[in-house]
């Protein structure tokens, strides 16, 4: 700022011009999507860069005929189940690793650790067979149960729990505070910010899942937003405005979530990156 020697006005003009050009490039696909979704079918293809007609009917159609309403409901249920159960199982296992004494602790910890090395894409071939043999194809159990525990969440929370001095736990015990009380009064308040970031991330990850639901969903009633869009795109390619309207309906909830939870997002993303 004070260090820059070149004429200030010219410099910031150049920067603003660059910023604007780049921003326009990034927003271009969003722009074409939005104006297509707001055009009636007969106007979509003439002049695809200009908003030369306006209707909300296509958005309504996508919601009802395109069944986006149904898909959104399915996805919300799936994402909320996965997120809430994941938080509970992560707190429980992180607490056990941090404050409980039991035999084979290192072995169990090693098992948790090793699961971090296994990418989703490797296990789904077999998980599809497992879910099939449990009779859980096209069901909420199939969409959620494989993801309700995570070693990642366990480690993240354990990291924070380990900052609690062992003396504090000892002292609490002297005062007659059992594990349940200690967890409620000391441990959970301490990890609340981390829980926010973890919760947001599991919500986003489960909301955005694509491969897994497309493997175990064959009935349209069980489609999530992501696989529902796929269904829409394959059956209505001659109605691009309908597909684009569906795309917008699918994107808006996440946009809202991200705006509301901006802080948690940046905190969570940078937790692993900046500290190295």
């Amino acid at each position: 700022m004070a260090l820059d020697t070149a004429p200030k006005g010219w410099r910031s003009f150049a920067r603003y011009s660059m910023l604007t050009i780049v921003a326009l490039f990034i927003l271009f696909p969003v722009y074409t999507t939005v104006i297509a979704a707001l055009k009636p079918g007969n106007k979509v293809l003439d002049n695809p860069l200009l908003p030369n007609a306006f209707t909300l009917d296509v958005l309504k159609n996508a919601w009802t005929e395109g069944r986006l309403g149904r898909y959104l409901m399915n996805t919300t249920v799936v994402a909320l189940i996965i997120t809430s159960v994941q938080l509970v199982t992560s707190i429980a296992s992180a607490y056990a690793f941090s404050f409980l004494k039991f035999p084979l602790k290192r072995l169990v910890f090693g098992i948790f650790l090793s699961t971090l090395l296994v990418p989703l894409e490797v296990t789904l071939v077999i998980n599809r067979r497992t879910i099939d043999s449990l009779g859980w194809l096209n069901s909420f159990q199939g969409l959620t149960v494989p993801f309700i525990a995570t070693a990642f969440g366990t480690f993240l929370l354990r990291q924070v729990f380990m900052q609690i001095p062992p003396d504090l736990r000892e002292a609490a015990q002297m005062d007659g505070l059992g594990h349940w009380g200690f967890m409620k009064e000391v441990a959970i308040p301490l990890v609340r910010p981390t829980l926010g970031a973890l919760g947001l991330f599991s919500f986003l990850a489960s909301w955005n899942q694509y491969l897994w639901p497309s493997l175990i969903t064959t009935e349209d009633d069980m489609n999530t937003v992501q696989t529902g869009l796929r269904h829409l795109a394959s059956s209505d390619l001659d109605k691009p405005n309908l597909i684009m309207a569906g795309t917008i309906i699918a994107a808006v909830p996440i946009l809202i979530v991200l705006v509301v939870f901006q802080k948690q997002l940046v905190r969570g993303l940078t937790a692993g990156a900046v500290k190295g």
């Binding site: 199982t89 607490y95 490797v122 998980n127 525990a149």
Partner: peptide, 29 residues
């Protein structure tokens, strides 16, 4: 030894899911 049941209750669910849907499928694959 006293805390085994509690540890089992707290770790059991996660362990079951991770074994069934992460480690078993790797071995089975």
């Amino acid at each position: 030894l006293r805390e085994i049941p509690l540890a089992f209750a707290m770790l059991g669910p996660s362990l079951l899911v991770l074994l069934t849907f992460v480690l078993y499928p790797l071995g089975k694959a």
